[in-house]
Simulated assay, not measured.
Amino acid sequence: MRFIETATKGRVTLGAGTLYGAINALVKKQWIAPYGDEADGKKKAYIITNTGKQKVAEELRRMDEVLRLASTIIREDEDQ
């Protein structure tokens, strides 16, 4: 939660329920998997799976398309 808040300079804050719900959904989709020894039960670590990497790549392509479209719209708007 602190990492997200710091990385986004406070623009995004996650509550525990939101974070753990998202983690559970990603595990269920097999986009991430538990990593390392969870015996102490305090801090859990996760690793991205190959499926997760593919999904991230797809999302990056989609976001790139959105960025290009928005940039085109802004340039066209500035030309008028």
Rank of each mutant, 00 (worst) to 15 (best):
M1A: 10
I73C: 06
V27D: 01
I73A: 10
R75G: 02
T8D: 00
I48D: 04
G21Y: 05
K9V: 15
G36H: 02
G10S: 09
A39V: 03
K28R: 08
R62L: 09
M63P: 01
G36V: 02
L69D: 13
E58I: 02
E65L: 13
D79V: 04
R75E: 11
L60G: 02
A70Y: 14
Q80C: 03
E65Q: 11
I73M: 11
L14S: 01
L60K: 05
D64R: 00
L67K: 07
T6Y: 11
K42Q: 09
K43T: 11
N24G: 09
T13D: 00
L14W: 12
I47N: 08
E58Q: 08
K28F: 03
D77Q: 10
G41V: 03
L14T: 05
G36T: 01
T6R: 14
G52K: 05
M63T: 11
L60Q: 05
T8A: 06
A70Q: 13
N50T: 13
R61A: 12
Y35E: 04
P34T: 07
Y46C: 03
A16F: 01
A39Q: 09
E78W: 08
I47H: 08
R62H: 02
V12M: 09
V56F: 10
K42Y: 02
G17E: 03
K44N: 05
I23Q: 05
K43Q: 12
Y35A: 07
I4S: 01
E58N: 00
V27P: 03
T72K: 14
E76K: 12
I47P: 04
T51N: 13
A16D: 11
I4R: 02
